[in-house]
Design a protein around this nucleic acid. Structure first.
Lengths: 190, 190
DNA sequence: TTTTTTTGCAAGTAATCACTTGCATTTTAG
DNA sequence: CTAAAATGCAAGTGATTACTTGCAAAAAAA
């Protein structure tokens, strides 16, 4: 006898992740989350047990949403595939990128949340497989695929980070096409 | 009448930054910091006013230490200079790198600490000038120097981040020489 | 030495946080 | 309709936090 719920988990999880991104783990209070989700704070504890469990559930839900996304597939066109990866990261998975930063910087300190850390790393590991295939075909230089993915995404991630930090430095947005061109053929002239 | 101090500010600042890196801003309690610095918690408030002021002072002190470091200079050898930048970042300024992550991810949320954010960005802006010079000489492709620095450091930063997060992914350390080689001449074969 | 300043210690304050309890109300299931 | 489950509301608990106060000891300055 499963009972229909008046409260939509998805709404609560969305509010939870929003508050996490905006205020961090310590800064996202259960009171705030409840308010943002439009439910009573007590209900939060009755349904999810504790703040840590709620956050873990919300992150896992975020992963489930990511799994349904258009996966980047191998097409045989290196340039197009790399661009697609970087685009996914820079646009569609912008939220994931911010989440990854949050998780690495903060959530890692909370042992009870350790297992949820893998969530944003799925993308990276998926990209690694495509890179590996192009390496086997002799289209990309060899080397640990995860390092190559890091080199591909690193500039984009760092650009996002720096720009979101609103530093005094005037950092322009990265041009993904140019980035791929330079990634493939280098920054050196000649 | 300047009075000699029994308590060394440097010790306190070191303990403060250590605690920040290990536990984050919210997680680094004044009690912990005092304990790590070997002084009384009350002294912390008497000398530095508030936690925010203490953290700000500690971060500014960290910047002062960075300023005394061997600056990366223009030598005319692109490859060597780029490698030196990346080395500084990956080794000597490892702590700075972690600090930057912490500051971007967490400190940015505390308005009273906003001005201390520029601290780790000094390096980046310094690197930008060297890159700009090589661009003027026609040795590197043109483009906003700060973006080029981002592309240079991005893979290293992301590698450090991912490895420090102890993910389930087996991410090897990055080889800086190879990274520079790929940065200059690209990942494409042919 | 005498005075001033710095530090430590014990205790406490007010706020906040995650989390709980009891009870009334609404919603859903049978 | 009736019973059970889900939710809201008000109040409270205990722990923790940044920060304060008063006073004595120690160190430095004069």
């Amino acid at each position: 006898m499963t009972m229909a719920k008046q409260i939509d988990d998805a709404d609560v999880f969305l509010a939870t992740v929003d508050m996490l991104l905006a205020n961090g783990y310590a800064g996202a209070t259960t009171k705030m989350i409840a308010e943002a989700a439009g439910i009573n704070e007590v209900t939060l504890f009755r349904k999810y047990g504790s703040k840590a469990e709620l956050v873990a559930a919300a992150l896992l839900h975020e992963r489930a949403a990511l799994e349904k996304e258009q996966p980047v597939a191998y097409t045989g066109n290196v340039e197009a595939d790399l661009l697609a990866m970087v685009r996914i990261y820079a646009e569609a998975a912008h939220r994931q990128s911010a989440l990854m930063l949050l998780i690495i910087a903060e959530v890692a300190r909370y042992p009870e949340l350790r297992e949820t850390m893998q969530v944003p790393f799925m993308l990276i590991s998926r990209f690694g497989k495509i890179v590996a295939r192009y390496q086997e075909e002799g289209r990309l230089h060899s080397g640990e695929p995860l390092l190559v993915v890091g080199a591909l995404l690193g500039p984009v991630i760092v650009n996002t980070m720096l720009r979101s930090a609103e530093t005094s430095l005037p950092i322009p947005p990265i041009d993904l096409r140019i980035h791929i061109e330079r990634f493939l053929h280098g920054y050196a002239i000649r």
